[in-house]
């Protein structure tokens, strides 16, 4: 069988190029805000992943002949007091930031969805129990809750992720619960109940699918927020501890030399801001795309 139609004009139907081409036509990518977000996030992500093979100094490598150097081709973000390359350290810090952001968003999303759905759907004592605990957690200003928790659990990436998540999970529970409550009284739930659909059916078919989009939006905001909180904790000396670089502790290191070498503190901060802006546009764009009113 040689049933192949050769058309010279059409692009190849398989291969990475075609897949990219097809993906670029996806409605998600035609949205201006999503495009802008990816324009910011993808280069940062690529650089972070490629950091080990890039021709730059390793993050922990010191060079006493090149201390506190102004940004140059060789040291894009300059160097610090021990001659370490700030750009390389920043990329290592971004790695931590992204890990924290992604972990916190996943943890908050998972626990928020499960507990919020249970509380909203079943009501009664379960709801009261969950919401009482949630209210107690919400009584702490979130940064202070995180500070309190790392003070008990110690520094390092795992306690930081845990502490930030614990401040976010109650907010996610509350959001999910309020969504479930408003969905529970909708007429399509009644319609399913008239044919004796099981509770499991109602939850998995009608309630949860309608809550996912707003929760994903909240999760991407939470990721941006977690990155900022991790940076703040590390800046205060309570998060990721040197010598391991994180965006917050690089800024902290540079604080002492602000007058002599302003780039040590300011440039990594720009990167944090860029990541946060990227995530913000991503969530904004996704929300607009998922909102039926915007069509």
């Amino acid at each position: 069988m040689t049933d192949i139609t050769l058309t010279t004009t059409s692009a190849p139907k398989t291969g990475p190029f075609a897949i990219l081409l097809a993906a670029s036509r996806h409605p998600l990518l035609s949205h201006a805000k999503v495009r802008l977000a990816l324009l910011i996030l993808i280069p940062i992500l690529v650089l972070t992943i490629l950091a080990p093979v890039l021709p730059i100094q390793k993050p922990l490598e010191t060079n006493l002949r090149a201390m506190m150097q102004f940004p140059s081709i060789e040291h894009v973000f300059g160097t610090d007091k021990m001659g370490r390359d700030i750009f390389s350290r920043t990329l290592a810090g971004v790695q931590i930031s992204l890990l924290v952001g992604f972990s916190v968003a996943s943890i908050a999303l998972t626990f928020g969805m499960v507990l919020g759905t249970l509380a909203g759907f079943y009501g009664g004592w379960l709801d009261r129990a969950i919401m009482t605990v949630v209210d107690i957690f919400l009584a702490f200003p979130s940064l202070l809750l995180a500070i309190g928790l790392v003070s008990v659990m110690g520094t390092g990436i795992v306690p930081v992720i845990f502490a930030i998540s614990l401040a976010d999970v109650p907010r996610f529970i509350r959001l999910q619960r309020s969504q479930v409550l408003s969905l529970r009284s909708r007429a399509f739930i009644d319609a399913a109940r008239t044919v004796d659909a099981s509770q499991y059916w109602l939850m998995t078919r009608h309630i949860v699918p309608n809550t996912i989009a707003p929760m994903l939006v909240a999760a991407s905001i939470a990721a941006a927020n977690a990155i900022l909180v991790e940076a703040s904790l590390s800046f205060l000396g309570l998060g990721i501890m040197p010598p391991q670089p994180s965006l917050g502790n690089i800024v902290r290191d540079g604080q002492t030399y602000l007058e002599q070498a302003w780039w040590i503190s300011t440039l990594p901060g720009v990167v944090i801001l860029l990541i946060a802006i990227g995530l913000h546009f991503l969530s904004d764009g996704v929300r607009e795309l998922l909102d039926p009113r915007s069509h």
Binding site: F188, A191, T194, H206, N210
Partner: peptide, 15 residues
Amino acid sequence: AQMVFQDPAASFNPK
């Protein structure tokens, strides 16, 4: 017994 609801916008799962 089955039902037809008042508000045609709310009586279907939009997904």
